[in-house]
Design a binder for these strands. Structure first.
Lengths: 188, 188
DNA sequence: GTCTATAAGGAGATAGAC
DNA sequence: GTCTATCTCCTTATAGAC
């Protein structure tokens, strides 16, 4: 017994794709309702405004990100392997998305920090990514040699990956993400 | 004899600020002419379209960036000092701009790679930044010990800085750019 | 809950007077 | 070269029928 995807979900899926691939400001309500094949009245019954749709989009992406990441790393136990797989995860995401970048960086670039709700979601997402890296590096420093202060190194690795994802958005390839992998290989 | 800034220049300055601080898609022609205090007819005598204004904006920023950078590094001769000053330069730029990020990364995030002219300007700017870092590292590897393949290290430093500038846009501070400086201090 | 019709305003761009 | 007036289209959002 297959359950039909709800209208509300279909609206969110359509809007999410458009926001991500062509930008929030470049996406009109009319295009969303046309591609979701619904009437405008239906949209505003489910979502108060275009901004409400944006918040739902970002919240969903936040949940999807860490669920998928944990799933992807699931088997790995060695911290170095975890680091490499974490970068692999980002490579896979970008290759699946035609190198369209990070949802949160893009929204921040479009809207700045003015919308408090959006900014909080972006800040929170990035803080969680950084904390995730810090956890992995904690395992590394207790099991092996201590190269650098763990906190600084976690920060630096985070920034490298951020830069490499942005570079993927600009160049359309994942070469720089692969450079990050090569650097991690040499570092530990 | 002070020369008055031309109307054309004033249009470009106004548009550039608006594009940078509130985004390209968030900036309307009406706002540009209002803030530049000119009539719409005048704008279209000087620029064919809003896109034409965008190209001029990016070209000007490209020139300003490397002119200012060379000026800032002018005195430095030691390659390690050059690296640190290069990051200092980015810190200063972000602090002067209330951490509003990189002109080119932001435009790429808003418009993607669809507009060939914009994408070429962004790609070219980033390639020049990377090449600049490579040059400095070449001096380092001939004068001192060779830690890593120069090309990979230049890449990695570039990505770190890119990530730290994006982080400044998100957090509103330059802490991560300062982490990059700390990392460079330890690296060489 | 989904629909159509429409409001109210802003977008980018052009014509033509001065 | 600068101006005003205007065109056409699209924007987000609401009202009210079914």
């Amino acid at each position: 017994m297959e359950k039909k995807i709800s209208t509300k979900q279909r609206i969110l899926d359509t809007a999410s794709n458009l926001f991500y691939y062509q930008g929030f400001n470049n996406t009109g309500i009319n295009q969303i309702i046309a591609e979701a094949d619904i009437a405008i009245g239906s949209l505003y019954k489910h979502y108060r405004s275009k901004n409400d749709l944006l918040y739902s989009y970002l919240q969903t992406e936040e949940e999807k990100f860490f669920t998928s990441l944990n799933e992807y790393l699931g088997k790995a136990s060695d911290p170095k392997e975890k680091l490499l797989k974490l970068v692999d995860f980002r490579i896979r995401l970008q290759e699946e998305a035609q190198c369209s970048g990070c949802h949160f960086i893009k929204i921040n670039a479009e809207l700045g920090r003015k919308d408090e709700c959006v900014n909080e979601l972006v800040l929170n997402h990035k803080a969680k990514q950084k904390a995730y890296l810090h956890e992995i590096l904690d395992e590394l420093s207790t099991s092996g040699s201590q190269h650098l202060e763990t906190s600084l190194l976690a920060n630096i690795l985070f920034l490298m990956i951020e830069g490499a994802v942005v570079s993927a958005t600009i160049t359309g390839n994942t070469n720089d993400l692969k450079s990050v992998k090569a650097y991690i290989q040499q570092l530990f």
